[in-house]
Simulated assay, not measured.
Amino acid sequence: MTKLIALLQFLLALAGFSSGGTTWTSQVHDGGHVLSSRAHAQDGVARFDCIDSSSGRCHYTLYPQRCAGAPCDAPPLRSFDVARGDSRQIAGLPGFRLCVDADGAALGPDCKPRAAVAKH
């Protein structure tokens, strides 16, 4: 099936049509924890759609693209949230790595909650 889709996209590109951009979807239905989000970025403009969230908000953290798949200590490019059923569009974004969560916990570049800092 994926080969057929790739072939169709190739043929459309040859004909002058291009879907372009990158789309991310996040779906989590784990007991009481629900998250459904979609984001699309093209030509430096990104749209973030919070379709559903058990907390009522989707919390987004964007890291530099270089943080994908590698240890990274870079700070987030942006952190923001979007209400369930709403969307937000942001222009002027470079390539980025997307992390999204329903809880609002601070997420690291690996999209996992950052470990609590020990107090001395």
Rank of each mutant, 00 (worst) to 15 (best):
V45Y: 00
T61H: 04
L11H: 08
C111A: 02
I5P: 00
G32R: 06
R88K: 15
L14H: 06
A6W: 08
G95Q: 09
P109S: 13
D101P: 00
D110H: 03
S79H: 07
D43T: 09
P71V: 10
S54I: 01
A105C: 02
S37Q: 06
I5V: 13
C50G: 05
R114L: 15
F10E: 15
T61S: 12
I90V: 14
F48A: 03
P76C: 08
D81N: 12
R114E: 14
T23M: 07
P76N: 05
F17Y: 15
D52S: 06
W24C: 01
R57N: 07
S19G: 05
P109F: 04
D73E: 15
A105E: 07
P94T: 11
T25Q: 06
P76A: 11
L35S: 01
A74V: 04
G32Q: 08
Q89C: 01
Y63C: 03
Q9C: 12
G95P: 14
P94G: 15
V117R: 14
T25E: 08
H120C: 04
D73G: 15
G95T: 05
A105D: 09
H33E: 08
A83P: 04
C50E: 04
L12K: 12
R47A: 11
A6Q: 14
D86S: 12
T25L: 03
L35D: 02
A118T: 11
H59E: 03
H120P: 15
S37M: 00
L8R: 11
I90Y: 04
D52K: 09
A39G: 10
A41W: 08
Q9M: 12
C58A: 09
L12T: 10
F96N: 02
A46Q: 06
F48W: 05
D49N: 10
A105M: 03
G92T: 03
A105S: 12
L14R: 13
Q9G: 06
G20D: 14
R84Q: 15
V82F: 06
L77S: 03
S54C: 05
Y63K: 01
A74N: 08
F10D: 15
L62D: 07
L8F: 11
Q9R: 15
A91V: 03
I90T: 06
L98M: 09
G56E: 11
D43W: 09
A70C: 05
G104L: 06
G104T: 03
Q65H: 09
A41G: 08
S26L: 00
T23S: 14
P75Q: 15
A41K: 04
Y63G: 01
S37W: 00
H33L: 09
G16D: 12
D81R: 14
A6C: 07
A74K: 03
T61M: 01
L7M: 11
K3S: 11
P94L: 05
A68K: 13
G69P: 08
V100N: 00
Q42S: 13
L77G: 01
A118S: 10
R47E: 12
F17H: 14
R47S: 13
T22H: 09
G31N: 03
L98D: 07
D30V: 02
G44E: 07
Q27P: 00
R78D: 09
P94M: 07
H29R: 11
A46K: 06
L98F: 04
